[in-house]
Amino acid sequence: MSKIVEETAKEAFGKVTDEPILEVKNLKTYFPISSGKWFNKETKYLKAVDEVSFYVNQGETLGIVGESGCGKSTTGNSIIRLVEPTAGEVWFKGENIATMKSREFKPFKKNIQMIFQDPFSSLNPRMHVFDIIAEPLRTNKMYQGKDLEQRVYELMDTVGLDPDLANRFPHQFSGGQRQRIGIARAIAVKPELIICDEPVSALDVSIQAQILNLLNRLQRDLGLTYIFIAHGIPAVKYVSDRIAVMYMGEIVEMADKDALFKATLHPYTRKLISAVPSTDPKKRTIGEEQAIADELNQGESDVVGCKFADRCPLARAHCREVRPDLRQLRSGHFVKCHYPLEQEALEENV
């Protein structure tokens, strides 16, 4: 019998981290959905984020992956309180920012910036690029007059935009350039943490690579910490130090990038990784037997046991009765599963 360390995530956090800049504990964000007839209305809740715990170390990139609708964006939005979390704690540099009043939250808001997927709709179409980038600097009264101008040009240069184009409108730029504008705006106020929500999903691969390399360079030069949310697994693998896998509002596995791919513990993570086509035509993996439908059952998040049980090839009766905890099986490797894959291998070898 191997000595598997069994601790819940709650106990383990704080011991393993190098130096977390952000710690999210038992975060829940529910959206009310009304159902039933008008005379018998009951408010049900869609549990977009349901018991999410993770940490992000200073200067690293934490990737968050998972299928559409699993709650990735809502997690990011709850941290910066674009939506109000229903319960849980968000510790940023020693303070719980999830519950503080909005006036107290203001300085933290400046310190955590966001980059969005759609560079087409996240920029005000009627503003010059100059004003788009200057806006957060003006709001936070950081620069004025000539200094402001200087700072905006410097930012444009940093993200690879020609400062001569400062008087153009967003629609006069390509998708990749618009994403650079969004990045310049995000780094303008010198934040420490940037939440990138699908920042390259709308872009062509060649432009994706430009933006991913830019984000890496800025991280090095400015000492930034990133949360990188995306459903494109190869891109997440490329930029992240650690990766958290989400499934139906929960983190089901979190580990160093290499451990996640080489020593996968959660059956869902394995399913997700094996679905990604390899770029080697001699290693084709998708067969005709995979044509069978098997879909995320949204809305039915009221299950008692493990939410993945309906799709899990390893599910046993116990899985349907008891919801597993997120626990640390190895140093820094967390999994929310009663029968993780490594253990399966151990048992087979007995």
Binding site: E67, S68, K271, A275, V276, A293
Partner: peptide, 12 residues
């Protein structure tokens, strides 16, 4: 589509 659904459609 998500990768898991993509896998099914490609298999199909």
């Amino acid at each position: 589509l998500d990768v898991t659904i993509q896998e099914q459609i490609l298999g199909l």
